[in-house]
């Protein structure tokens, strides 16, 4: 197995898309994220790794303010998207989430048809001028989600009837349909079998051409396979952040090394 080999060639400097500065997150009395600084580049896959409960998913959910839906959650510090603070009072989280899309751990298609699942985002954001326009968006998104060929003949059948891997790719297609700038993925393969995982990973690599992708994963192999940048979280701290190759072959922090070699987590 050469899972740990990293394609160094793909790492090239990109423009900063999102930046987190001194971010702290509290759940009630629990201090979940401690003083995290990270820069997420455009057209790059950034992976967040770390043991369970280290705060990587929590941090990911801060990036499009999904934590707003949890009453007891409080965020301090700045998170900038293209230089604009997304926690600014004037920012509408609804508009933000159209630009920072999200794919979840468990595939969660709506109990609607495949077409309506994908068309949902464009419809609520008013992205399509007419039916033909919408049809085109749906087709383009499904193609980008690498699922078009499998579902093009049954767009009106329910999305819940697809297999797990297909459902997850449908959810990715649904997320890209709103033309986001950043795509957040919270352990998108943890509920999938190895074949479906491979398909989704391949898709993630393709998506890098158009979007900035952030993926949370607890599989180090997956991080090594799909990402160019990796951030290692431990107990709410960002321990180390750098090019994936460096993190996996030559980590600076002893905690990162312990984790990579399987001593913690």
């Amino acid at each position: 197995m050469n899972d740990m080999t990293v394609m160094d060639s793909t790492v090239e400097a990109q423009r900063t898309k999102m930046a987190a500065q001194n971010v702290n997150v509290y759940y009630g009395d629990t201090h979940a994220i401690k003083d995290v600084n990270v820069e997420i580049e455009d057209k790059t896959v950034t992976a967040f790794i770390g043991p369970s409960g280290c705060g990587k998913s929590t941090f990911l959910r801060c990036l499009n303010r999904m934590n707003d839906t949890i009453d007891i959650c409080r965020v301090t510090g700045d998170i900038l998207l293209e230089g604009e603070d997304i926690y600014d009072k004037r920012v509408d989280p609804v508009q933000l989430r159209a630009q920072v899309g999200m794919v979840f751990q468990k595939p969660n298609p709506f109990p609607k048809s495949i077409y309506d699942n994908v068309a949902y985002g464009p419809r609520i954001h008013g992205l399509a001028k007419n039916k033909a326009d919408l049809d085109e968006i749906v087709e383009r998104s499904l193609r980008r989600g690498a699922i078009w060929d499998e579902v093009k003949d049954r767009l009106q059948s329910p999305g819940t009837g697809l297999s797990g891997g297909q459902q997850q790719r449908l959810c990715i297609a649904r997320a890209v349909a709103t033309e986001p700038e950043v795509l957040l993925m919270d352990e998108p393969c943890s509920a999938l079998d190895p074949i479906a995982t491979a398909q989704v990973e391949e898709l993630i690599d393709e998506l890098r051409e158009s979007y900035s992708v952030v993926i949370v994963t607890h599989s180090m192999q997956q991080a090594a396979r799909v990402s160019q940048k990796t951030a290692f979280f431990h107990l709410g701290n960002l321990v180390e952040f750098g090019p994936t190759g460096q993190i996996f072959t030559n980590p600076e922090d002893p905690r990162t090394e312990s984790y990579i070699t399987g001593r913690i987590g």
Partner: peptide
Amino acid sequence: DASMDNPPPARARSLRQADANTRRR
């Protein structure tokens, strides 16, 4: 944030201003 080295390309709109559609919604 004009001081940034790499100024962002012209975006359709700033996040700080709600567009008409968002206001309606």
